[in-house]
Simulated assay, not measured.
Amino acid sequence: MTGTKPTAMTGTKSRAVTGTKPGAASLGVRRLANRLLAIFVALVVWYLFASGPGSSSGFPTPLESFRSAVGLAETGAYWSNIATSVETALLGLALAVLVGVPVGLLIGANEHVRRSTQLLLDFGRTVPAIALLPLLLLLFGATRDLGLVLILVSAVWPVVIQTSYAVGEISPQLRRVARAYHLTRWHRLRHLVAPSMFPFVFVGLRIAATISLLMAISSEFLGGSDGLGYALLQAMQINDTERAFVYSFTAAVLGLLLNLFFVLLQRRVLWWHPSVRKGGAA
C-alpha cells in the first residue's frame, strides 16, 4: 500500500499541472482577444466619426492617419522631435527625483515636521503649473530651461508626498530594533528605510513620469521650443489635421511606453516585494 501512494500522488499532481496549463493558456487567449476586440471597436468608432460628424472639420480616418504616420516616420525631424521631448521629460523627472526624495525623507523622518508641512504640500500639489507659464516665459524664454522648471514644479509633488508617507509609515518596532542593534544612520537608511520606501516611491515615480512628459510637450506647445509640442502647434497652424493627429497619438504612445518602462523597472528592483512576486505574499 505504501508503494502505491507515490504513484497515486504523482498522477494526481500531473493531472493538476496539466489541468492548469490549458486554463492559463485559455485565459491569456481570452485577454488578448478582448484587447484586440476593444481596439477594433475603437477603430470602427473612429472611422464612423471621421466619416460622419468629423468630416466637416477634416478629422482624419484611421487609414489617413496611418499613411501620414508612415510619411512622418520616414523623416528625421519626426524622430528628432520625439528625442527632444523625451530627453526634456527625463531630465525634468531626474530633477524632480533629486529634489523630491531628500525633501520627502526630511519631512517623513519627523512627525512634527510632517504635520506642519501637510497644508503646504496640499497647497503646492494643487497649484496648476501651467498658471506659472507666463512668468516662466519672462524668466527663461522659449528654451528647454522653461520646460525643465515647469516639469520640476509639477512632478516634484508626487515624489515628495510618496517618500514622506513611506518614511512615516515605517513600523515603530523596526525602528526600535534598529536602535537596539545600534545601527548607523547609513545602515538604517539602507536596510530599514529604503526597503520600506521603494514601493511607495515607485508609485510617485510613475505619476511623476507621466506629468513630466505632459509638461514637456505642453511647454513646447505653449512656449515654442523644439519638440513634439512645437511640431503639433505648427501642424495646427497650417490646418494639417492628419499630421496634428499623428503627433498627438505619438505623445500618447510615449506616455504609455514611459509608464510601461517604470512598471518593468519596478518589477526588476522590487522582485522581493509581495506586490511584485508571483503568488503575492504567499
Rank of each mutant, 00 (worst) to 15 (best):
M1D: 12
P6C: 03
P6S: 08
P6G: 01
T10C: 02
T12R: 13
R15A: 15
A16K: 09
A16V: 06
V17R: 14
K21I: 13
P22G: 04
A25Q: 14
S26D: 10
L27E: 12
L32Q: 10
L32N: 11
A33I: 10
A33L: 15
N34M: 14
L37R: 08
A38Q: 12
A50V: 03
G52F: 08
P53V: 13
P53S: 10
P53T: 07
G54Y: 03
F59C: 02
F66Q: 02
F66C: 04
L72N: 05
Y78I: 07
Y78K: 09
Y78D: 05
T84M: 14
A89L: 09
A94R: 03
L95T: 01
A96R: 02
P102E: 10
I107N: 02
A109N: 14
N110E: 11
H112V: 14
T117W: 08
F123S: 11
F123T: 13
F123Y: 10
T126C: 12
V127Q: 05
P128N: 09
L132V: 09
L132A: 15
G141S: 06
A142K: 01
G147M: 06
G147Y: 01
I151L: 01
A155S: 15
W157G: 04
P158D: 03
V159L: 13
V160K: 04
I161P: 04
Q162F: 12
S164T: 09
I170H: 01
L174M: 11
R179H: 12
A180Y: 12
Y181Q: 09
R188W: 08
L189S: 12
R190G: 11
V193Y: 06
M197N: 05
F198D: 01
P199D: 05
V201K: 00
F202K: 00
R206H: 04
R206M: 14
R206L: 05
I211C: 00
I211A: 03
S212W: 05
I217P: 01
G223V: 01
S225E: 09
G229L: 05
A231D: 01
M236A: 12
T241C: 02
E242D: 15
A244Y: 00
A244N: 00
F245L: 15
V246Q: 07
A251H: 03
V253R: 07
V253Y: 06
L254I: 12
L258V: 06
L258G: 00
N259Q: 13
V263L: 14
Q266M: 08
V269K: 08
V269N: 09
W271A: 15
S275E: 10
V276A: 14
R277Y: 06
G280V: 04
